[in-house]
Amino acid sequence: MSNPAEGSSGRTLARYLAPALVLAGLVIAWALVVALFAVEPEVLPGPGLVVESTWADRSALAPAAWTTLQEAVLGIAVAIVLAVLLAVAIDWSRTARRSLYPLLVASQTIPIIALAPLVVIWFGFGQTPKIVLVALFTFFAIAVGTLQGLASSDPDSMDLLRTMGAGRRQLLWRVRLPSALPQFFTGLKVAVAYSLVAAIVAEFVGAEQGLGVYMTGARNALRTDLVFGAVVVTALLTLVLFGIVALAERLAMPWRRPSQTEADW
């Protein structure tokens, strides 16, 4: 009962085993296709070659990945602060809701990727424009999640606390913000999935360092194997970020029913 999130070890194994088997099957199919049809490595390198060359190039890849990871994490951090502040403001004040909510929704029609060149013009070639782009990209998911979460507060609990003399600020801290946690984390997971991609796209437009730069360089050198390597690294890093968020979610909400935790996966 102390930690309802822990399943039996058999169930945990089954949970990881099934997708691992599917993944292994895909990798084997990939290797077979490359071997059977003798595909040129410039077009499609086999998984063995990708791993081998990526490992060999790790001294160039690691700092690139580190740069991009920093941009992604800082961008998300900025997005979390702004999105939560905006969501609370919209939830708090009718004026804010009327004036900001339509704009928030409408802002989604802007193709944020298309803003990348602009952001580079404004903030230069360093990490700042990437952080800005990641923040822009991930902001919406977090803001909408938080907003929906705030709105999902139980009206009975609100009434009850009001009859106990709670003011709006107390209601915010004691009912609305905790109510928003599950959906905030759902939004954050979506945001995290986008974050590295957003950073890489920003790097494509112009950067000194990062996975985007690395990929562009590898492509120009016809090193398709290294492009693949960078993609795999990006995927792994996204997975790590996702895992960190999932862990934070669990720690932040020890009160959740185990089935709820499961369903979220």
């Binding site: 009975d156 009434d159 009850l160 106990m164 004691r174 905790p178 909400m253």
Partner: peptide
């Protein structure tokens, strides 16, 4: 002192 129809217990 007021008690609403549903218990309104805070799950957290």
């Amino acid at each position: 002192a007021f008690m609403p129809q549903r218990d309104g217990l805070l799950p957290w």
